[in-house]
Amino acid sequence: MSCELELIELNDFLVTGSRHHMAENNIELKGTNFTLFVLNVSNNDLLAVEAALMDKVQQAPAFFNGAAIVVKLDEDIEEFDFSGLKQTIKSQGLVLVGVTGISHPELKQLARDNGLAVLTSGKTVSAQPQAPEIQIEVQVEPSPATLFHRGQVRSGQQIYAKQQNLVVMGSVSAGAEVIADGSIHVYGNLRGRAIAGAQGDHDARIFCRSLEAELVSICGNYKLSETLQSECWQQSATIWLEQDTIQITQLD
């Protein structure tokens, strides 16, 4: 085989635009995470790429149909036929959104001239100024993102783990509130309020060493202390969402 091909599902591309709200233009630029396929290409042999791609796509045609793809070129490649690459990718029903892994400036310019975004993979971020015409920065979010809180969360205190999981190494007192866009872990007694999946993550969960909560909520579905008394009260528990209903089971 003249080139090694690999399809990877990657989470760590964050495409960030300007944060300014351009209300007068009725548009808004926001950074968001997307899952992209990365195709590793180690040489110029487009026929081999086509054959390998065809092989992959045929395993699950519906899954790959119209999928966005980023091509990662081997560092050693100094010349590349980008328009040929576009054709090859398109012929397999995929959409080429950009290339990455290019170290040679001429090659980068060539890719841009072919209308391709040059992305910098998170693992090799360098402080180079970005291409001026398309302002796309690529950066890595530490993953899995977690906010650690050491010690007790006292009555009246509120902790919000924005776009993160929350780990509390201590108890959450009655009258305290812990909130996370992801999951919440309490290595102590949960006596206050715990709100997981605050932005609508249905898979978010709440874990605690002893369930004595005033309220637990996932994605806006909640249970109050009154109804919790009959379910794992004062026991270690995990709380999750099943068809918009809060489920509670003992951990041990």
């Binding site: 006292r154 009555s155 009246g156 205190q157 007192s173 009655a174 009258g175 305290a176």
Partner: peptide, 8 residues
């Protein structure tokens, strides 16, 4: 509970 608040 009020003591807890003050400790915070």
């Amino acid at each position: 509970r009020d003591s807890d608040r003050i400790i915070g």
